[in-house]
């Protein structure tokens, strides 16, 4: 269960309509998680990432460093789709992130925790929190951070309604349909999921139903020429 203060952060996040205006939300989130700095980086394709939230200079520098070097808990978390928790950077096994360990020594970062923003192979980015002191996050803080990362994933994928949308993502068929649409329209997986969502929205039908139709090949989404995110036409059933 998430904490009351994280629930409040998520509420603020819902009200806010863009990553730019989210500075205060980020600060509140860092307070809630009991950390000194918080960053959010969005994957921009390849190994690159774009810093969109940054509450603290050292945290931002650490994040830049990991993605410049292409190694560290952040890139690992993104690659695997699983959180990487480092309660004491000085204790990291030699050779795990050799360049990062050398370069980050000058930064006031002693502990770092990275939470992937992802839906399976759809990698959206990473939420990173840092501390100037050594020590683990509590179980409750980890839970809060995971839920925040999940909410940010939804935002980055253009869903303001991810909360209601939580249930369909439990169903294998939605992920299967995402894969199918990505091949049909020659789109990366994130855009394929957006297409499915857009179609569900414009047709007023649940994402789960749309996905079932796609997987059963009763429905085939169309790219609709310019791919500008407009409601999609539906080709004839086959």
């Amino acid at each position: 269960m998430i904490s009351d203060s994280m629930a409040e952060v998520l509420r603020l996040l819902q009200l806010d309509d863009g990553f730019d205006a989210a500075a205060e939300v980020a600060v509140r989130a860092a307070e809630t998680l009991g950390v000194d700095g918080l960053t959010v980086s969005l994957a921009t394709g390849g190994e690159q990432a774009e810093l969109v939230w940054c509450t603290d200079e050292a945290a931002g520098q650490f994040e830049d460093l990991q993605f410049t070097l292409g190694e560290g808990p952040g890139p690992d978390a993104v690659r695997a789709g699983a959180m990487v928790l480092v309660p004491d950077l000085a204790q990291v096994r030699a050779g795990r992130w050799p360049a990062l360990t050398t370069e980050s020594g000058a930064l006031a970062v002693c502990a770092v925790f990275c939470f992937p923003m992802a839906i399976g192979a759809i990698r959206v980015g990473v939420l990173t929190v840092v501390r100037r002191t050594v020590g683990p996050l509590t179980d409750a803080q980890i839970g809060d951070a995971q839920v925040l990362a999940h909410a940010l994933t939804g935002r980055a994928l253009g869903a303001t309604v991810l909360d209601q949308d939580k249930a369909p993502l439990l169903h294998a068929v939605v992920h299967q349909a995402t894969g199918m649409v990505s091949v049909q329209l020659d789109l990366p997986l994130p855009q394929a999921l957006l297409r499915l969502r857009a179609h569900a929205y414009s047709s007023g039908r649940p994402l789960l139903d749309i996905s079932r139709d796609v997987v059963a090949r009763r429905l085939r989404l169309d790219l609709n020429g310019n791919g500008d995110g407009n409601p999609l036409p539906v080709s004839d059933k086959d």
Partner: peptide, 25 residues
């Protein structure tokens, strides 16, 4: 991620399942 923590193991398992479904499609 060569992760050592249980929470990370659980998350990795859940992610793996979703990737598998996407690949089926």
């Amino acid at each position: 991620a060569h992760s050592e923590t249980e929470r990370s193991q659980l998350q990795y398992a859940l992610t793996s399942r979703i990737v598998l479904e996407q690949v089926k499609g």
